[in-house]
Simulated assay, not measured.
Amino acid sequence: MKPIRIHYLQHVPFEGLGCIGQWVTQNQHTLTVTRFFANDELPPVSDFDMLIIMGGPMGIYDDEKYPWLTEERQFIRQAIEANKTVLGICLGSQLIANAMGTKVHPNQEKEIGWFDISLTEEGRQCKLLDGFDATFPVFHWHGDTFELPAGAHHLFQSEGCKNQGFIRDNVLGLQFHFEVTPESLKEMLKHGQDELTNGKYIQSEEEIITHQHLIPQNNEMMFRILDRLLN
């Protein structure tokens, strides 16, 4: 794989690249970052080949509390229009969906913990997911969800949330966290204790930690998708 220039957007200190950082290093890609929590500036879109947008506890419409969200949405739209490869995870996927002209809204249920997702019919036909099991567990931490952008292919769904992933051309949105590592999981639990309430699709901290053995297979799927997205 030819090394490329990757820029990523980070919203809070405790939701970084996770295992994607390992993939970047292994493939000798160039990496830059805008940390909105540290008031970093956004680069010109011409400065990178791929944009990755990470998660965070805020909603995409929380502009009053996080004024940089307005500029971020515009920046993502510019990257998509410039035909950059774009990947969004959780909040990142919602920002992409909104930048592509569709709605983001509260899901009927919050999903926090390890729950199964299933490939849709379009997902089973997608070359990006060739060889993936029909159903498998992934890590979730979200209360909002997106509607599918026009022309996008619906890839994943779960019992608790219909729209778990989409792709349109070289733009991919994933509602869940393939990238989670033991370290990032620990940080998310530390900073999200108040969200671990009673809910149909909310696991306790103990349940979440018990399923840490699923992390390596989630990371392997993340690596596979990243390789294929660039090829």
Rank of each mutant, 00 (worst) to 15 (best):
K2V: 10
I4A: 01
L9I: 01
H11V: 04
P13T: 07
P13I: 10
C19Y: 03
W23Q: 04
V24E: 01
Q26R: 15
Q28M: 06
H29N: 12
H29A: 07
L31N: 07
V33C: 14
V33D: 01
R35E: 12
R35Q: 13
F36W: 08
F36S: 11
F37P: 00
N39C: 10
D40I: 04
E41S: 14
E41W: 10
L42D: 02
P43S: 07
P43A: 08
P44L: 15
V45Q: 11
V45R: 09
D47S: 15
I53Y: 02
M54D: 01
P57L: 06
I60L: 15
I60V: 15
E64K: 14
K65Y: 05
P67L: 09
W68I: 14
W68R: 12
L69H: 01
E72G: 08
E72Y: 07
R73E: 11
F75W: 05
I76G: 00
A79H: 02
I80K: 04
E81A: 13
A82C: 12
N83D: 13
G88L: 02
L91G: 01
L91C: 03
I96F: 01
N98D: 14
N98V: 02
N98C: 14
N98F: 09
G101L: 05
G101V: 09
K103R: 15
K103C: 11
P106Q: 13
P106N: 12
P106M: 13
N107G: 11
K110F: 04
K110I: 09
I112P: 01
G113R: 05
G113S: 15
W114E: 06
F115E: 03
I117K: 03
I117W: 06
L119F: 08
L119Q: 02
T120I: 04
T120A: 07
E121C: 05
C126G: 06
K127Q: 14
L128P: 01
D130A: 10
D130S: 05
D130N: 10
G131T: 14
F132M: 10
F132I: 01
A134W: 08
F136S: 05
V138H: 01
W141N: 05
W141E: 02
G143C: 12
G143V: 04
T145K: 08
F146D: 03
F146R: 04
E147M: 11
A152S: 11
A152H: 05
H153P: 03
L155K: 03
E159T: 15
C161F: 13
Q164H: 11
R168V: 11
D169C: 06
D169I: 03
D169M: 08
N170W: 02
G173R: 03
F176E: 01
T181C: 02
T181I: 05
P182Y: 10
P182C: 09
E183Q: 14
E187R: 09
L189W: 10
K190M: 13
K190C: 07
G192E: 05
E195V: 03
N198C: 13
S204P: 12
I208M: 13
T210M: 15
Q212A: 08
H213Q: 15
P216G: 14
N218F: 10
N218D: 11
E220D: 14
E220T: 14
I225N: 00
I225K: 00
R228S: 04
R228D: 07
L230N: 01
N231T: 06
